[in-house]
Design a protein around this nucleic acid. Structure first.
Lengths: 241, 241
DNA sequence: CTATAATATTGATTTAAATCAATAAAAATT
DNA sequence: AATTTTTATTGATTTAAATCAATATTATAG
């Protein structure tokens, strides 16, 4: 189940590349804990494995856990009345559900499900909050992660409102390359429908635009195997074209 | 300059009303500070008055301050290459710029400008962070505010992607009534262009839909004076109509 | 109190993207 | 391996919303 494609073309550390914001590792937070605090968390933790397509978090349910992805790949998405929108793809070493930490309605704000089999630590929220209320460095790390997430959502909101369909698809491809896979050649564990939900378009339109990009020799596409040939041009399309 | 309209029709505390999330007062945070900490903040504070249309925060500039609105009304917006989107309207007793607190790029993620003359406390970010790194209750309050904000942005993102134009306008009107003015009759300090940026539509379309709503006796509209006549129907339109 | 500029409104037209419909390909099941 | 089901693709059509254009109203400046 694990994605085994090689990364043939390396990426430069180019900040300006697409509007999508790169994830940061959340493991750093744990280094701020004392032994006692680590023990508290350990004692209030269960590790669960989730299989492909299983729900990890269901939007609107009571947020009783803070989750930490140890292995695998998950998609985060918002479910509306008639549509869904994929917020981002989360990989190992990332917390899930942080934004429900102190949100007064105590509900998960988004759903998460498995793309590649996951191993996830579930921390009891009360215990987590207890540690948080004792350790200011830990709390500050959480603020950092939350803000990083905010930055992503803001740029997402802008993307959705101002880009045209081609721009959205180009942006999505660059986002996957730069920030999820860190590589110009990848196999994506998403269906066409899910790609559409990620781009915020209809499936048919998404497919059509992908074909267009292929015809224009910007990408190579075979099923779920992507290869980016002309990232500069994609970049240009992304910022309106 | 201060909005002096009366609130003739009171609102019920109805959670389900529109997707827009009501602001919470941020003053509570200060009660967690010790005298020393309060002094640190006071010594690193300037109070500035801003006049109508002035920029308070400019997106992309270095985030050197954490701001607190003491008086007035401000709009928060994201500026893209070709469009802007108004995120929300912020009133007194609210922090601005919290999401740049620990964001590693150290830039403001959005812009803010004045709708009704503002009196704003500017705290030096370093001093603010210093207090934050000492006082865990204060830090936890910040997490609460940030999460509240995340909840709003998520619901905004969903609104923008899944609602049609009428739904967006209905949602905006309900949001203004329920969460900004807390009242079914209000005078809105926004131009038609700004209303359009709030709804995420073109100005012409926004105006047309407002007229439609007026013809259908859902609202009464005279320049910038709004009166909501049929909130239930607006509610229904908001969730797809 | 005009003149000028800015904002708002209305109508006609265009266009981009969604939807609908048919078919093809792939995956899963027997 | 054959059948069924699901997913993907392509083309035709519709539609909602943007754009363009003209005019009206309101605000601002002289």
């Amino acid at each position: 189940m694990i994605n085994s494609n090689f990364c043939i073309i390396l990426l430069f550390e180019n900040e300006s590349m697409s509007n999508c914001i790169k994830d940061i590792s959340h493991t750093s937070a744990f280094s701020h804990l004392t032994n006692t605090e680590t023990n508290i968390l350990e004692r209030n933790k269960t590790t669960i494995t989730y299989k492909k397509n299983e729900y990890i978090i269901k939007q609107g349910t009571f947020a009783n856990n803070i989750l930490f992805i140890k292995k695998g790949l998950a998609k985060l998405f918002i479910e509306g009345n008639q549509k869904r929108i994929i917020l981002t793809i989360k990989m190992a070493d990332n917390f899930l559900g942080l934004s429900s930490l102190y949100y007064d309605k105590k509900l998960y704000l988004y759903s998460a499900s498995v793309l590649e089999d996951c191993e996830i630590d579930l921390y009891d929220k009360q215990a987590f909050k207890h540690v948080l209320s004792q350790n200011v460095d830990f709390a500050n790390e959480m603020i950092k992660f939350l803000n990083h997430n905010s930055a992503r959502i803001y740029s997402r909101l802008l993307c959705v409102t101002e880009k045209n369909a081609r721009g959205k698809v180009a942006d999505m491809i660059l986002c996957l390359a730069n920030n999820i896979f860190g590589c110009f050649e990848f196999t994506i564990p998403l269906s066409r429908q899910e790609l559409a939900e990620f781009a915020g378009l209809s499936m048919e339109n998404t497919i059509r635009i992908l074909k267009e990009f292929e015809n224009d020799k910007l990408i190579k596409l075979k099923g779920k195997d992507f290869k980016i040939i002309n990232p500069e041009m994609l970049e240009r399309i992304s910022e309106y074209g």
